[in-house]
Design a protein around this nucleic acid. Sequence first.
DNA 1: AACAAGGTTTCATGGTGTGAAACGGAGGGG
DNA 2: CCCCTCCGTTTCACACCATGAAACCTTGTT
Lengths: 247, 247
Amino acid sequence: MEEEKKTVRAVERALDILLVFTTGSEWSLTELAAKCGLHKSTVHRLLATLEERGFVMRDEATEKYRLGLRILELSAHFARADDPTIGLIGEMEKLRDQLGETVSLYIRDRLERVRIQAVQSRQAIRRVAQVGVRLPLSVGASSKVLLAFADSDTRSALLNDPAWPAGLRDAAYERQLDEVAAEGYATSFEEREPGAAAIAAPIFGRSGKLFAALAVSGPSNRLTPDVMSERAPAIIGAAKRMGALLD
Amino acid sequence: MEEEKKTVRAVERALDILLVFTTGSEWSLTELAAKCGLHKSTVHRLLATLEERGFVMRDEATEKYRLGLRILELSAHFARADDPTIGLIGEMEKLRDQLGETVSLYIRDRLERVRIQAVQSRQAIRRVAQVGVRLPLSVGASSKVLLAFADSDTRSALLNDPAWPAGLRDAAYERQLDEVAAEGYATSFEEREPGAAAIAAPIFGRSGKLFAALAVSGPSNRLTPDVMSERAPAIIGAAKRMGALLD
DNA sequence: AACAAGGTTTCATGGTGTGAAACGGAGGGG
DNA sequence: CCCCTCCGTTTCACACCATGAAACCTTGTT
């Protein structure tokens, strides 16, 4: 049962240190060491390396570590010219203006989903970049879409993953997903976050492969279950049009 | 003359691989190996590590490597709630609306400058995130501002850095910087990019320390030298107001 | 079929990352 | 003022683990 890891431990550790910064923006050396379960001196050495390349910097006031400008630089190049989502922003803005709510695009990554594009509701507080946030694949309207419209074998692979919440592995949940697949959209009402609701529909590429989930989200007092089912066709329609723009 | 490096070589190499993606979005293993001067098998192992943590992914169509979603995730957390530039966006938008040109914020990082915030001219082609791009500190209006208003010892340290272009190490250049410091702003006309011009002014924090350069840039047929000197006061004023918002 | 051009795996070797321990330095409480 | 504590930094011997040459696959091309 020898599991051959063909990865480099030192690099794994350095990347884990970087990932700690998704749970807080400022960390001291000892905090990082504790969080990663590494020796202080090891973390010190890895941080020196990360800092030397600009992936991490020290806040001169607090003396703690922050993410460095290289992260910003890399993210600027992540959104490349041929990014398929750029062409979809127009359609997302139309939907935002039509419904007055925030519109997002989610794709699946292993057992999570990532918001890869967003158009904020006009009244929303300005935030620089919620794009990139990770959410669990087990709750929320877009999660259900991403699961329901996945090929059946990847779906079952995900549901049987040891890390998948055991409470959501029953037949009732699968039936709920089948229902979503039949309806063509999914909703969530105060499922992940109290006071929030969302409607989501799948975007398929030309090849018929699931590309992303288009989600409209807002406060649950505006997006009541009735309102959501009433607005679903608009979202499904937008998702269809967006799919046609792909490839 | 023993130079003790207290960094981790394997991590340095992995980060260098990531940095290659600032010069292009898609790379094959052999291309990366060539670019980094490393053995194929080494790059393969490092890429496996980066991929396992989501920092890199393979494009399923081309089989080449791209930046992974973890980059997006980290960048989302880079722009944190206490990001000082967020409070400055309002002023930047006012300036954009007043002058009709793109407004950017640059800070210095070693011998380069990084655009850390931007408000696009309304007529500009939509681009997702030019924020994060790196430009040389040797050309452009904001470069001159960042140099001219730096403490005199850091300025001389930069100018005497072995990596600094030798052609810009003469007394004439220093005099130009002194002139910028006296005028309170700098301009550039088709200096870095043909057809482009810019005006820049310094933003100082409460403590009087240089925080960033505020730049207004546009096509050189609109931003002629006369127009720029006419508009300079507006930019200097905005930079002053923005400085007052800091801390 | 033979070949070329990528990517992947193997494996012996010694360089290199590791972590215990010791050091330094900045508060802060007695 | 001194002692103590809490961090960050440096040192160093050892074992381990990253390394790269070479062999092996896989895919597409001539």
